[in-house]
């Protein structure tokens, strides 16, 4: 048995467990669709689909391997804390741009980003910046682009979608502020 060590002072953010609901769901999804394909389309179509999928997995393997390593390096190298510190103090245009940048850099799923968003809002970011952060994390998040989108959809598609999504955080930020004002908001903070 190894000694239980106390966590290091700069503990990394909580990680997703390797086996969780999403993995079980994926196993069920793959099994069900494979059985469905076999029953509905016959053995030949099943073998053909299996062949195609194995080929695709092998083709994206070099890209995915690089992407996963790159995402891990970026998570350690990117100055997320510095941007976060700035955000609490700035509002207006600068705050919006900082919030969008932070959303773009923050890795991980909702498990990581929602607590971070609460922390950022607690640090004094306003409604517009909070919405810009959430939207930017949703549509521009680099980790998702690198790990999933480029390997599966290709660089061209990822670039078009990224460019088409660049204005979205600002649009939602202003839209939300406008709506809250017209819904009769008294407080400007969520």
């Amino acid at each position: 048995m190894s000694n239980a060590e106390p966590p290091p002072p700069s503990a990394p953010p909580p990680r997703r467990r390797l086996v969780d609901g999403s993995l079980l769901f994926l196993i069920a999804f793959a099994t069900a669709s494979a059985i469905g394909c076999y029953l509905a389309k016959g053995p030949d179509a099943f073998v053909q689909a299996l062949h195609d999928e194995v080929g695709l997995v092998l083709r994206v393997l070099p890209v995915v391997t690089g992407a996963v390593l790159l995402a891990a390096c970026l998570q350690v190298l990117l100055p997320i804390d510095a941007v976060k510190r700035q955000l609490g103090q700035d509002s207006g245009w600068r705050g919006l741009l900082l919030a969008t940048t932070l959303g773009l850099l923050v890795p991980g799923g909702p498990m990581a980003s929602f607590p971070l968003m609460l922390a950022v809002m607690g640090a004094g970011a306003d409604v517009a910046a909070s919405v810009a952060f959430l939207t930017s994390w949703s549509v521009l998040g680099l980790q998702r682009v690198i790990v999933w989108e480029i390997p599966l959809m290709g660089g061209d598609f990822a670039l078009v979608r990224f460019l088409a999504s660049l204005p979205l955080p600002l649009v939602t930020a202003y839209g939300t502020v406008w709506l809250l004002r017209h819904l009769g908001a008294r407080k400007g903070r969520p």
Partner: peptide, 9 residues
């Protein structure tokens, strides 16, 4: 798993 599932689906 995801790619297999999506392909069969």
């Amino acid at each position: 798993l995801a790619m297999m599932g999506a392909g069969f689906a």
